[in-house]
Write a protein that binds this DNA or RNA. Structure first.
Lengths: 250, 250
DNA sequence: CGCCCTCTTGAAATTGTTCAATAGAGGTGG
DNA sequence: CCACCTCTATTGAACAATTTCAAGAGGGCG
């Protein structure tokens, strides 16, 4: 899918003098406060920055595949990714979408437990796992932060199990839109006409539905007046209260 | 459901002299190697032991409810528990079953994200969260262990999402039985006639099915010759290969 | 401007649910 | 120790939600 075969892994800011590593390129980072780097001071940030490389992905480009040796962890700085698992016959479950500020690749195993692929064009920070683990010895704050992230993901995973196991298509879509809105707000982006960059197929694979059911349910919510489908993959939450009622305690 | 209203929280081993705290009651712990205490030496274990109380639950007894202040974390030493979430109308999703050696209560939030209830009679070790967090400052091994546990749970949660979102009833039941067998083996228990202590309703709520569908699917697998339903909540995996094929890459 | 891919819509088929009744197992008290 | 009682599990039949199969509409990119 990548039309241009350009080198998609490149050191950021090569023009910055080496001696000024302490805050670059992280100084300009838009998501610093929400990610693994949040609890670090400038000196510590420099150590993290030193082992980091930048990665750029175009829409549809894979980052890694399930079963691959888990050599790196990532931080999303812009764009949207999906992570998913496959059954042998190709059925797919998207286990999460990732946005700016999200952390990716947490796995105590040797190999990734899921595949990751760009939904839109993306920028990420890449950290070699081995080097990050060295760093964690010296900076236990990082480990604490990771435990914090993992705990939050676990809570989200349980919420998603409730959705997958017990909610109707209508409830799933309502919950999904509210989740997108909540997360957009968290990272300081527009939450009411909410951006929905992923395809109907991706949404279906996330919610345990088919694309057709996703599409029909959007139509139905539109006809109810609960939402409006705007151009550019945006959805207006016309009756947010109603949506929250439908979602059922999200 | 608890017929006798006896004090179900009691210090273990009150007969042991206080000065011999270093290894008691943990010295006799059957699950020490598989839990939060695994990486600790005897001296460290004594510190953990010092903040621990023992809890006993009878079948059906709740341990805590979703939304309650999360004051404690637990380690299961024997028995089976379930953890679950509810929708406002009472629909339930069991997000996990816990067995000897499992850790419970990991939540960076102020409140529990799920309810926990005994499936069989249970014994647990209880640790006040605040005290354990103090201890983690001195014993970073514990924090590492928790991150490890959280990572593994995250992997399991993603596997469960795949099951809930994309597997058929038959595949779900097959995966479920194999998961029970695998976990029984891990803790050194009989894995082939596998113990299935939970009710059909609990299984259904775990797999996103109704009790009727669970029951019908068991019957169907029995008629295939894939499994045998034995007395005392045991299931013989008569054709394990077939079961693994059905489960689809579990 | 046109092609391709995604999204939408329709109708039929299917899986799993719901409602209902029976059978079985475990526990209690006589 | 047995009978009873209750709760759980099984089985059946009708129903419903979602899927599958199929076709057409829309939108974005070259």
């Amino acid at each position: 899918m990548a039309v241009f075969d350009f080198d998609r892994v490149s050191k950021l800011a090569p023009a910055v003098p080496r001696e000024r590593t302490e805050a670059s390129p992280c100084a300009a980072c838009a998501v610093r406060g929400m990610t693994i780097c949040a609890p670090l001071d400038n000196q510590e940030l420099a150590q993290v920055s030193a082992i980091m490389t930048s990665v750029e992905l175009t829409a549809g480009e894979p980052l890694f595949d399930e079963g691959e040796a888990a050599g790196n962890v990532y931080n999303v700085t812009s764009g949207t990714l999906k992570v998913y698992k496959l059954l042998p016959d190709g059925r797919r479950q998207v286990t999460g979408f990732l946005f700016a500020g999200d952390f990716l690749g947490l796995a105590k195993q040797e190999t990734y437990a899921f595949s990751a692929e760009a939904v839109t064009s993306c920028l990420l920070c890449r950290f070699p796992r081995a080097k990050l683990e060295d760093l964690m010895q010296r900076l236990p704050k990082i480990e604490q932060r990771l435990l914090n992230i993992a705990s939050n993901e676990l809570v989200a995973a349980q919420e998603q199990m409730l959705l997958l196991g017990r909610k109707t298509a209508r409830e799933k879509i309502a919950s999904f839109l509210l989740m997108l809105a909540k997360r957009a707000k968290q990272r300081g982006q527009e939450e009411d006409p909410v951006a929905v960059p992923m395809s109907r197929t991706d949404i279906g694979d996330y919610l345990g539905l088919t694309t057709e059911t996703v599409s029909r349910t959007f139509t139905q919510l539109k006809q109810d007046g609960t939402i409006q489908l705007l151009p550019n993959h945006q959805v207006k939450l016309a009756a947010r209260e109603a949506l929250e009622d439908i979602a059922g305690g999200f």
